[in-house]
């Protein structure tokens, strides 16, 4: 059992195994379940992620409030045009992250990674890298175990709840997890995975949770989108040999402490940030009417 990223990397190096393998063995030990059972459950989660991505980029998704839906498809069309500035790998990942969050906002089925509001980043990065790296199904499932191992440390030592720690705890954590897993998928070392996570999460410290009208839509969908792009960039930086001067565990601790300092208005209560702008307030009024607690159906 590992409690820090340092221990996780140490176990992987000492036993000459990947981070994903450390996570699988730890899961077998703590739950008493077999390797096959654990692997097949994760493979099932991968299927759910793939279906959500496919729905988001192929179907006409619209949330009940009307605040989100359709942007993943817009990006896919733009990608097809060949005019993209940031390149096809990055933009495909961004589009697939958005696809997941749009399906989530429309009350579709998704796999929380680590939460529903931040569910787009990890599958976005994984399916975005698929064409470039051509991974086997097993490697794709292993990607999720690696992402899970890094997220596990964040969840236990800090927080993955926007209400407790702001968006840095949700999309920030997801971005770090995806960056670390992308490094392993691309053939990097456990240390490089840890640096990628530290770079990615360090970049998101202080990010607030400010959902317009309290809905997991604006800015959540776009924060996942750009989180996916950050994850790939952070992975590339770590693979190039760039190190985070602040060790990953200390970045996680800093994230936790920043979350504790964050005022409650910036932690999922929809009382600050983008939620408390002129347009944000107007959208809330439009959706819920003058009584902010009227239901969506009554408001329409």
């Amino acid at each position: 059992m590992f409690q820090t990223i340092e221990e996780l990397v140490h176990i992987a190096n000492r036993q000459q195994i990947s981070i994903s393998e450390v996570m699988i063995r730890t899961e077998m030990e703590t739950t008493g379940r077999s390797r096959e059972e654990i692997f097949s459950k994760m493979a099932g989660n991968l299927d759910v992620m793939e279906q959500a991505v496919q729905r988001g980029i192929n179907e006409d998704i619209k949330s009940r409030s009307g605040l989100s839906g359709g942007d993943a498809r817009l990006l896919q069309h733009y990608l097809d045009s060949g005019r993209s500035l940031s390149g096809s790998v990055l933009l495909d990942a961004v589009s697939k992250a958005m696809a997941t969050n749009e399906v989530n906002a429309a009350m579709g089925i998704i796999c929380a990674t680590p939460t529903a509001g931040s569910a787009g980043v990890v599958p976005g990065v994984l399916f975005g890298l698929r064409q470039k790296l051509n991974p086997s199904r097993k490697q794709m499932v292993d990607f999720l175990f690696t992402a899970g191992a890094f997220g596990f440390v964040v969840a236990n030592n800090a927080s993955i709840s926007g209400a407790a720690g702001g968006c840095q705890a949700e999309v920030g954590s997801a971005t770090g997890m995806a960056a670390a897993a992308a490094v392993e998928l691309a053939g990097g070392t456990p240390e490089q995975s840890a640096h990628a996570m530290a770079i990615a999460l360090g970049n998101m410290l202080g990010l607030i949770c400010d959902p317009v009208a309290g809905l997991v839509e604006v800015p959540c969908v776009k924060r996942n989108a750009i989180g996916a792009s950050s994850a790939i960039v952070a992975a590339d930086m770590a693979l190039a040999g760039i190190k985070s001067l602040i060790p990953c565990d200390e970045v996680i601790e800093a994230m936790y402490r920043v979350g504790r300092m964050m005022p409650v208005a910036l932690r999922e209560t929809a009382l600050g940030g983008l939620a408390d702008t002129k347009t944000g307030r107007a959208l809330k009024k439009k959706i819920f009417g003058s009584d902010a607690h009227a239901s969506v159906t009554e408001g329409q």
Binding site: Q3, M23, T26, E27, T30, T31, I38, K41, M42, G44, N45, V48, S63, V103, N104, A105, A106, M107, G108, I109, I110, C111, A112, T113, P114, T115, A116, G117, A119, V122, L144, F145, A147, G148, A149, G151, F152, A155, N156, I160, S161, G162, A163, M177, L215, V216, E217
Partner: peptide, 21 residues
Amino acid sequence: MKYRSVFDIIGPVMVGPSSSH
């Protein structure tokens, strides 16, 4: 430890939009 399984982090499979809410 609050979370003990990898499936607490990669999961649950659920109807959106919020894991906590």
